[in-house]
Design a protein around this nucleic acid. Structure first.
Lengths: 205, 205
DNA sequence: CATATTTGGAAACGATCATTTCCTAATGGG
DNA sequence: CCCATTAGGAAATGATCGTTTCCAAATATG
């Protein structure tokens, strides 16, 4: 008895795709972030991704699928960067600061004007698009949970006041961070953005 | 020498408009808030406002003009309600709380899911639409200035800690309030929303 | 080498978009 | 009382939307 092993693993029959899906999605992320879902046309995506409409529809079911794939890719990349940053944290308080600073860094200047795809999706699609709403909610939950864990860790290692409410404070920090993304659309200075972070840190004293 | 007084003041020649512009704009505000600018079609507006496309284009130059008029109307109504609420404030701290509570009230439940037109405009249009961006910026500035004035007032009347930075703290409260609007799109409970307000108030101690 | 399968890419599809046109209805001014 | 002016409303406009079709090119399999 023998088991078939395909000689070229992961590659199915037929002409191979000539572009990298993740690279293409990274371009789509920029367009969707800047113009939103309804503001982005297939022509926009075709131009930005350097593909023909035909190729797009070979790789994805429809525009909505391209969007969801872009969202997932965006979260995957951003979460990986955040995790990397949080590994450097010495204690709970330092972790909270690093997380706030990570978001503040993306919320000002060019990146701030481009916008956050999660915030954009929440605002534009969450009401009527259940699949988008579920993704937004999971993203927000993740942030809230991470903030709360860092606060608890800080309360244990002595870097954060033990009398504050971890969940309520985490939720406030989550609000701050989403708010910075809204304010970032009219591009405030780096200084202004980080002054908010500094004030927020006082909640941990 | 005599001065001509038109017998029917404010009414020019021609068939009179059969609908009230502000009432129509209030319907448009709901549609634009829920579906965004690009997600809203003239058909959507026609249906919601109870008008024909022809009448819409008699009253407004184009879709963009309808949107800007809706935005202006939205801000006018909301600002009037906020001013009314702030007149009840006993002191600076009470004023800050009333302002946070005013926004929190609109950010949860049905209104939260519908969304804030200013936040929606910031996220969807601020990059490429200068007229929209100017309006958003003015709206944010107004909120920040109001927060800052209330903080200074509280520092004078003794209800707010004199050592906090009024401008930086005002900007943080502005972030919180915009963030609540983003989180409100996935409709958190009234309790959750107000717990954020309570934590934010600790910054004034 | 032949066949099945998939992609690339241009062209075409019907639907819907924002906007205009055209006609009738209703008003104020001369 | 007529004329200029504006609104109401249905129908038509060209443009663009998202999507599909069709054919040639490129691969894996037998």
């Amino acid at each position: 008895m023998s088991i078939d092993i395909s000689p070229n693993p992961g590659r199915s029959a037929g002409r191979p795709r000539e572009f990298d899906i993740d690279e293409a999605l990274d371009k789509a992320i920029t367009v969707f972030s800047e113009k939103g879902y309804h503001g982005t046309s297939i022509s926009d995506l075709r131009d930005a991704m350097g593909l023909t409409a035909g190729s797009l529809y070979k790789a994805f079911k429809d525009k909505h699928a391209i969007f969801l794939a872009s969202f997932d890719r965006y979260k995957q990349v951003r979460n990986a960067l955040l995790d990397e940053e949080l590994e450097k944290a010495n204690n709970g308080r330092d972790g909270v600061y690093r997380m706030l600073a990570f978001y503040a860094e993306g919320a000002h200047g060019e990146g701030g004007r481009r916008g956050c795809l999660a915030v954009g999706t929440a605002v534009e699609l969450a009401i009527f698009d259940d699949e988008a709403a579920r993704r937004v909610e999971r993203s927000m939950d993740r942030f809230e949970t991470t903030f709360e864990a860092l606060i608890r860790r800080g309360q244990e290692d002595g870097s954060i006041n033990r009398s504050i409410n971890p969940n309520a404070t985490a939720r406030l920090l989550l609000s701050v961070v989403q708010g910075l993304r809204v304010l970032g659309k009219t591009s405030p200075s780096r200084e202004q953005t980080f002054s908010v972070v500094d004030v927020a840190m006082k909640l941990l004293d």
